[in-house]
Design a binder for these strands. Structure first.
Lengths: 335, 335
DNA sequence: ATATCCATGGTAACGCTCAAACAATTAGCT
DNA sequence: AGCTAATTGTTTGAGCGTTACCATGGATAT
């Protein structure tokens, strides 16, 4: 790597002259600036990032901690975060907590040594289950900015980006009711997560409010240990009258559709299905799955924006929570 | 952030004493070491990463550039890279080239300023199409280590991790031939990529070698602009006799399976399908898709290992190419 | 008293920026 | 013309947080 010192030596000027010249300081003569810049370009000079960061105490790097890259939602959020961060001149250091509290603690700890200017993260499943947030508070207490997205924790005083999980599920359930469905089942493999609970509550609320709906709500909670396909398929034998399915996670809606088709259900005539999936699964379904679209890209983008605002602000201000609108997109699996 | 200086002041010793104490230097008295360490722990002292990097000229950070996080293959590779890097004490800075040459050039440029110790990357589609590798050579010339994976370029002198694309497709085609298939079609949406071409060649070679195979090979190349589902579906009308399909990309195998089922093909009796997909799509198929497994996790892991070896080595040595074994996993869509 | 050891302190350097100092030129004033 | 004042262009020096090397001081041993 070529340094200011080397440029200075070659040009027979001092280091600071070179530095100022490259930064277009008005103190430096026009011709000198020219000479310096030419040599710099010629030698492909790049200011050393570490030196800059050390001096300015700014890294222009964000730490991003997500629970699982293989989950399409988080992959897309990561994509959006990377795009927006890059646009704003930030790099991202990515860590995958793998849904583990210990890994999350570790990543936070390791990056809190001046590696990043702030954190964007979504909380690991284990962390949410154990409701353990000390490691996050510790970071916050040190004055490090943090933006939580999707899986947040209400107790933490920091910026957040969420969707209206309750409302989205409520609306989708309402839609099924309006279609005249009388036996609406909810499937969830995220019942342990904050967002999962909210969605389930939205479903329950919608059913409760409907005086003409007689059935008891049915919540099928699938855990990691379960065989998703088996559990979903079993629904059709244990609950023969099912005529509406709301899946509040990424995959179970698609699985339900496949299983239902295999069992000969007419869709959407006899059975409606609404999923919480991203567009990417559509290519694997026929008819196309109706979904609640989370606008994942906007979620990631907003998280970065909140972070950048926070980093640019002079005085402290109250935490902000951005709620991204969801949209019920009706396709082939609803009437 | 608490610094050595602050510790030193509180303990009434010099900065260098604190530094040495924390590094267990034998020069320092036992009791002093104790005192220093206690305070350090108490104040949660973390050595400043930037200062360390500046001093040692090592960042313990790797730059990872992938073409597309939404592609499951790359997401999984990224996951593996992150896991292994973390295990080896490295952070990763992730950039997504979005299949664009310009973004790739940009990321390489931006991180070549001392931000990372080396690069792990897979080449963007545009870059491969235009066969433009100057930006990569430039990095290599500066002595920055680089490991290419999956989408590599033979001309570049650096470490590589690949799979035997030719052999994998060859073997899969052989399998279809051994089943007695007489009209085997290849579907590919990566015909423009090095790996795509190799796979196609493997398919062609297998057909050529079989003297009893009379048909002309049929390669269906799908581009981004095409509607994958339409193109695949059309195959069944334009090529009524098809009894074997080899999909060499991530998704078209699953789509072909769905379309074939919808058209009433008996699978695997009348039609065999082999895909190049990862396990994750299996939940969306019935019968389960037979696939060529790429061992994506091993690919990522190996890339990191090559990189770490390279970084630890004293003297320069020849580039290494690691080939990860593939495995033909027969499931429900083959006899 | 001199050599030997031990514990600690001081300094420089990594690459950079910024404030302040300085030298050299030009302008302003009697 | 002669002297100060202002302007311009450049260098010096300190500091960001570390560590490595060298120096220093006091105690102990010879």
């Amino acid at each position: 790597m070529v340094t200011l010192k080397q440029l200075a030596e070659q040009l027979n000027v001092s280091v600071s002259t070179v530095s100022k010249a490259l930064n277009n300081s008005p103190e430096i003569g026009k011709d000198t600036i020219q000479r310096v810049k030419e040599l710099a370009k010629h030698l492909n000079y790049q200011p050393n990032k570490m030196a800059l960061s050390l001096k300015s105490n700014k890294t222009n790097t964000l730490g991003v901690i997500i629970p699982d890259v293989l989950n399409h939602f988080f992959a897309k959020a990561l994509y959006a975060i990377e795009m927006e961060a890059s646009k704003q001149g930030y790099n991202i250091i990515t860590c995958v907590s793998n849904e583990l509290l210990s890994k999350e603690e570790n990543s936070l700890q390791l990056l809190s040594n001046g590696s990043v200017d702030g954190f964007i993260m979504s909380i690991a499943e284990e962390t949410q289950k154990q409701n353990e947030t000390d490691h996050i508070s510790r970071v916050l207490d040190r004055g490090m900015p943090m933006v939580l997205f999707d899986r947040v924790c209400d107790d933490l005083e920091c910026d957040k980006v969420i969707i209206d999980d309750f409302g989205a599920a409520y609306e989708a359930t309402k839609h099924l009711l309006n279609e005249g469905r009388k036996h609406i089942v909810l499937i969830s493999d995220i019942e342990k997560l904050s967002v999962g609970k909210l969605r389930t509550n939205g479903y329950l609320k919608a059913l409760q409010e409907d005086v003409s709906y007689k059935e008891e709500p049915v919540v099928i909670s699938v855990t990691k240990a379960d065989d998703l396909e088996k559990v979903v398929d079993h629904l059709f034998v244990s609950n023969k009258k099912v005529d509406g399915i709301l899946s509040v996670d990424n995959t179970s809606g698609v699985v339900a559709l496949h299983k239902a088709l295999k069992r000969g259900y007419k869709i959407p005539e006899k059975l409606s299905i609404i999923g919480f999936s991203d567009d990417n699964v559509l290519v694997f379904t026929e008819p196309k799955l109706s979904t609640i679209s989370q606008h994942t890209f906007d979620i990631g983008k907003s998280a970065v924006k909140l972070m950048v605002d926070r980093l640019n602000q002079k005085s402290k201000s109250e935490p902000v929570t951005t709620t991204i609108k969801t949209k019920l997109v009706l396709r082939g699996t609803t009437k």
